[in-house]
C-alpha cells in the first residue's frame, strides 16, 4: 500500500521544523514506552540510520544512542551509516515487527545499503521490541485518543492485508 500523491503532496509545503517536531514527539513517546528499545544495538547505538519512504518526499535520520531524529526533504544526499528504503507503511510494519524484512528484501520492496551489521542489529532490536504504534501513539491525540486508535488500527490492518500477496504458482521450483 502506497501513500497516494494527493496525501503526500502537502508535505512539500509543510515546514521541516514542524514535521521534525512532530517526529521527535512520536520518537520520544515510543522510546518512553520501550526503554530497552535499542539495547540490542550494542556498538551500533551511535550510528546514523536513514529511513527513506519511497512514497514520501521526506527522509528520516535517526541516531538511537542520542535519541535524535532529523527530517530532510528528498531528494537529498544522505549522510548515514546505513540506509533503508521502502514505502512508508512497510517501514512502519518493520518498526512494529509485523513485516519480515528478509521477505521484503527478497521481493525487492525494501532495499538496504551501507553498514549491514548496524542494519541487522537495528532490524533485530525493532523486531524484539513489541512496538505497537496504535497503542503507543494514540495517546498523543489527547481527548481524541480513541478516534486516533481506531484510525491507526484500520489503516494498519489494510496496509498489512495488501502486503501479504501470494507469489503464485510460477514460484515453485524443482
Amino acid at each position: 500500500m502506497l501513500i497516494p500523491p494527493i496525501l503526500s503532496a502537502p508535505l512539500h509545503m509543510i515546514p521541516i521544523p514542524l514535521i521534525e517536531r512532530i517526529c521527535r514527539l512520536m520518537f520520544g513517546r515510543i522510546a518512553k514506552a520501550h526503554p530497552g528499545l535499542f539495547e540490542r544495538l550494542d556498538e551500533h547505538r551511535e550510528k546514523r540510520f536513514a529511513f527513506l519512504p519511497t512514497d514520501l518526499p521526506l527522509a528520516f535520520v535517526v541516531v538511537p544512542g542520542k535519541q535524535e531524529i532529523s527530517v530532510l526533504r528528498q531528494p537529498v544526499d544522505i549522510v548515514a551509516d546505513a540506509v533503508t528504503e521502502a514505502p512508508l507503511f512497510l517501514l512502519l510494519g518493520l518498526m512494529e515487527g509485523r513485516c519480515d524484512a528478509d521477505a521484503l528484501f527478497f521481493s525487492r520492496d525494501l532495499s538496504v545499503t551501507g553498514d549491514m551489521e548496524a542494519m541487522l542489529a537495528m532490524r533485530n532490536a525493532l523486531d524484539a521490541s513489541n512496538i505497537d504504534l496504535q497503542k503507543d501513539l494514540a495517546k498523543l491525540a489527547g481527548p481524541f485518543a480513541p478516534i486516533a486508535r481506531r484510525v491507526i488500527g484500520e489503516v494498519r490492518d489494510r496496509a498489512l492485508k495488501d502486503q501479504m500477496k501470494p507469489a503464485g504458482e510460477a514460484a515453485a521450483w524443482n
Partner: peptide, 21 residues
C-alpha cells in the same frame, strides 16, 4: 503452503535433495 513462497528466499521453494531427480 503456497502462501509462504512469497516469504521465501528468491520467492521460490524446492524439495532439494529430499526428492533428488
Amino acid at each position: 503452503l503456497a502462501r509462504l513462497r512469497s516469504m521465501s528466499e528468491g520467492q521460490k521453494t524446492t524439495s532439494g535433495a529430499y526428492e533428488k531427480r
